[in-house]
Design a protein around this nucleic acid. Structure first.
Lengths: 223, 223
DNA sequence: TTTGATTTATAAACTCTATATAAATTCAAA
DNA sequence: TTTGAATTTATATAGAGTTTATAAATCAAA
């Protein structure tokens, strides 16, 4: 899960990212607000950790943009003296504060907590392996990249994603995706499955569609 | 966003205005109440920061006029000994006090907070790539140049800007921009998108509108 | 009269489906 | 166990149909 951490202090950047990466997160580092915004424009993140005190645009301003525009939770890092900042940030979309100096364990704990909470709310996503798909907007990301695929292929992939690890019959799939109206449903489905496989391979997805001969398909996580 | 700061102390005037300008505000300076009133008559302001202790008309009197007559929020700057002044001002439209000496950062926080409260919009600008748009004034700049575009196109662009990197359905867009009343919404939207693209290209914007066939559009930063 | 918004008309692009052909698997018979 | 026909699935390609883009015309408002 991609996180963004923004701090002008290189040491903290390193320290924090090492620990978060160890915990399985994908961490991008920015040493100022401008760099952070650039990252945000390129990739989707699930959470941002932002230092309040920075040269140029400060953490509060950045946090505001992040919460409003990108709608992801934010954790602010604030120095000891500025605890009153808390009041100013809460209720503005800031999800948590951590006062420097802090234990990395504590940070990790909070990150986990927030993401857990947040994911419950935003459960419009199907995630399997390194493939993530948003049911509402059809946004598809594989690894860090976002992809634009033809609709039919997205529909089929979603159907399979939602049944990962289970056998899905050809006819269930055909019924679900097409209803009745298809003259040569068998071959048409073949074609689509074939194309999806190609794309998954090209995108280096960690999932694959396995053929269940005589029955249908099954989506699995590669290992 | 235009702010007015009134103080007889030239040093403070300078210090504060530099910081506020850095934060993206448009700051006008007045060194006494008379000059301040002259400014207020000429230009609309969104907030005034006023020193209590001034030669001639004092800060309280000025603040009263400002809040009553121009109906904008006021922050009073008060020296350490005069904290009892607080009682005098609150309930009169004074929104906040700051005691000298103060951190410019603190002032900035309060300014942001108050403006937010007042106009509910706080991040009045959308910035993506080299495109910047002010939601209040519809000012649009691409690179260094400013542009005047037709309203409909600005509305659509803003909607997309605020959802950069996300897929936006045609119908969300149409609903948002037009509501219901449109006979051929599909084609109308096409036309507008087309024009926006032309203009973005001519202005050498670093963003582009990508088509999500069968769904809608998505605004992205070019690379 | 000029500018912006919408509609209409036409062109272009892309998806989907169908078809053709190849490859793989199954199964039965030798 | 091997072989080969039958069956199922994979892959490649092309045409039909749909969606979107573009250009031009009309309408409305300033």
């Amino acid at each position: 899960m991609p996180l963004l951490i923004v701090d002008d202090d290189e040491a903290i950047l390193q320290l924090v990212s090492i620990h978060l990466e160890q915990a399985g997160y994908n961490v991008k580092k920015a040493s100022n607000a401008e760099a952070a915004l650039a990252f945000l424009q390129q990739h989707p993140f699930d959470l941002a950790i932002i230092d309040v005190m920075m040269p140029g645009m400060n953490g509060f301003q950045l946090a505001n943009i992040v919460t409003k525009q990108y709608e992801i939770p934010v954790i602010l890092l604030t120095a000891k003296g500025q605890i009153e900042d808390k009041e100013r940030g809460f209720g503005q979309g800031i999800d948590d504060y951590i006062v420097k100096p802090f234990e990395t364990k504590e940070l990790l704990f909070r990150v986990n907590a927030i993401l857990r909470r947040y994911r419950k709310i935003h459960q419009a996503q199907s995630v399997v392996g390194n493939v993530k798909m948003d049911k509402d907007t059809w946004e598809l990301s594989i690894g860090e990249k976002q992809f634009i695929w033809p609709m039919k292929e997205l529909e089929i992939l979603l159907y399979l994603l939602q049944r990962t690890g289970r056998n899905v019959s050809r006819w269930d799939l055909i019924d679900e995706i097409w209803g009745e109206t298809l003259e040569q449903p068998e071959f048409t489905l073949n074609t689509h499955i074939n194309r999806i496989r190609e794309r998954l391979k090209r995108a280096e997805a960690t999932i694959e569609i396995v053929t269940i001969r005589g029955f249908g398909y099954r989506l699995e996580v590669k290992r």
